[in-house]
Simulated assay, not measured.
Amino acid sequence: MSNELPLISIGMPLYNAEKHIRQSLDSLLRQTHTNFEIIISDNCSTDDTVGIVQTYAARDSRIKIFQQPKNIGPIPNFQFVLQQARGDYFMWRSYDDWSDDNYLETLGLLLDRDNSIDLAVANIVKVKEGEEKPIQLDLAKANGSTTFLSSLHMLKISHPGWMYGLFRRQVALNAINDVVENFPHVWGWDHLILFPTVSRNRVGASSETRFFQRETGISHSRYRPKLPKEQVSLATDFYRVCLISYQESDAPFLAKLAMVFYLLRYTSSKTEKFTRILRIALKLRKP
Rank of each mutant, 00 (worst) to 15 (best):
T46M: 01
D48S: 09
K141D: 03
A142Y: 00
Y103I: 05
A122Y: 10
T106E: 00
D42C: 04
L104A: 03
I124D: 00
H153K: 03
R93I: 14
I124W: 01
V81P: 07
W98F: 07
H159V: 02
G144H: 07
T146F: 12
L104Y: 04
Y56E: 02
F148M: 07
A175Q: 04
K126E: 12
S158L: 05
F80L: 10
N71Y: 06
I157Y: 06
L111W: 01
Q84K: 10
T147M: 00
R168P: 03
A57G: 10
L107D: 08
D96V: 06
T49H: 00
Q83M: 14
T146K: 13
K70T: 09
P74H: 14
C44G: 05
F80P: 14
D97A: 06
Y164Q: 10
F148V: 02
M163V: 10
W98P: 05
Y164F: 15
S99W: 04
A120S: 07
A172R: 08
P160A: 09
R93V: 14
G51Q: 03
P134I: 10
D138P: 01
A140M: 08
L155I: 05
R59F: 12
D48M: 13
I135Y: 11
L149W: 14
R113N: 09
V125Y: 14
A142W: 00
S145Q: 15
R169G: 03
D114G: 12
D138R: 00
H153L: 03
R169V: 06
S94N: 15
Q54V: 13
V125F: 12
G51N: 06
G161A: 06
I75S: 00
S145K: 14
D48A: 11
G130E: 12
W98A: 12
S61F: 04
I65F: 10
E132N: 12
G161L: 00
G73Q: 06
A175E: 07
P134C: 13
V81N: 08
L107S: 08
S94A: 14
Y103R: 00
T106L: 03
G130Y: 12
L149F: 11
N71D: 11
V81F: 05
H153V: 01
N174T: 12
N115T: 11
F148C: 01
L166T: 04
Q84V: 01
T106G: 01
A172K: 06
L119M: 08
I72F: 05
G108H: 01
P74E: 13
Y89L: 05
D42V: 03
W92H: 08
F148D: 05
Y103S: 02
Q170T: 10
I72H: 10
V50H: 02
I117V: 03
N174K: 15
G108A: 03
L149Q: 14
T146S: 09
V50Y: 11
T55I: 12
L119Q: 02
D101Q: 13
L152P: 01
A140Q: 14
N43Y: 00
Q79R: 15
D114C: 08
N43H: 00
D60Q: 07
